[in-house]
Design a protein around this nucleic acid. Structure first.
Lengths: 166, 166
DNA sequence: TTCAATGGTTCTATTTAGGAACCTTTTGGT
DNA sequence: ACCAAAAGGTTCCTAAATAGAACCATTGAA
């Protein structure tokens, strides 16, 4: 499967993976949320080759996750800044951080702590239901075909649910 | 950077990316949460080559995200089932789905809807603070070095914060 | 005049992925 | 007894992506 066919899939995961589903894009985004903005700083922090960094930054700009803004002229220099679409990836990044903190840390413990300025406390991110506010676990979620579902998708889901139930 | 050096980084994002940071692993996980369990079914749904699928399933088992359980003998056949560590990736997958639903859908709308069995309503996932329960946005979070921080990491953060403030 | 800083691009060698064929075990049909 | 099919891979060869290093352009400072 080509990368460019990924973004044409009907699945929201596949389309998001087309944007952030490679090794470097997610690490670049992590750094963006840590206020990194310039080519050289990404490059030295990440250890990625300049070639690939240039390519990924272009891709993130093309998808509207970052915008390239000049911060000086003579010579013109740009920095890469999160758009609102990019800022909206924060839950994804935080969910990844939290899973890593929970399941992948070594004996020294987590590398970063997060303070919620609003309440002043160190926190963990929790995913809750927009309707009832309770934390969401996989087993309490039921999937339905939506308006953009592919033909046959609903049937496939139903068949698998039935098979599992019997 | 090799994949195997990624999982040795001190950053939780980098370590998580070592597990799920490629095109296929995330799509395999999506299917796991849709109750897909068998090699052939992953293969036909994803369109991934059998070679790569075998490799990714092995990797996910090695990291403890999936376990390989026999479901018949003569001949022995296995299926791949999410462990608790794997189930804990649900917030990551849901955050990705939600971002895709918000920013990457075409005119037909989102492909799947999610019902929270507990409250019976269709919902969106929301990331909230574990301490005060308010939704988390990037600008209201302040980062501190944790016990597992690399030498110099705190200084780097402080320098960037200072540069941004002036 | 030459150097350094920033932000890239270009080159080749390696690694990874894609595509197709093949293998193994066992059941089921003829 | 023989052949095909199903499930779950493995092996092979080719194509694409990545790493690593060198190079280029613009400008200001020494």
């Amino acid at each position: 499967m080509r990368w460019d066919s990924l973004e044409q899939e009907q699945c929201s995961v596949a389309r998001t993976v087309a944007v952030i589903g490679d090794r470097w894009s997610l690490l670049i985004l992590r750094d963006c949320f840590l206020r990194v903005r310039r080519f050289e700083e990404f490059q030295s922090r990440l250890g990625v080759t300049r070639h690939i960094l240039a390519d990924r930054l272009k891709k993130l700009v093309r998808f509207g996750v970052l915008r390239r803004a000049p911060y000086q002229v003579n010579p013109t220099r740009h920095e890469y800044i999160l758009t609102q679409k990019g800022l909206d990836l924060y839950p994804v990044v935080m969910a990844i951080v939290h899973w890593g903190d929970t399941h992948m840390v070594d004996e020294r413990g987590r590398p970063l702590l997060h303070e919620h300025k609003r309440c002043g406390k160190m926190f963990d991110p929790v995913l809750v239901c927009s309707e009832c506010g309770e934390p969401i676990v996989a087993k309490e979620v039921h999937v339905h075909a939506g308006p953009g579902a592919a033909e046959g998708a609903a049937e496939g889901l139903a068949a698998r649910e039935a098979a599992r139930a019997k």
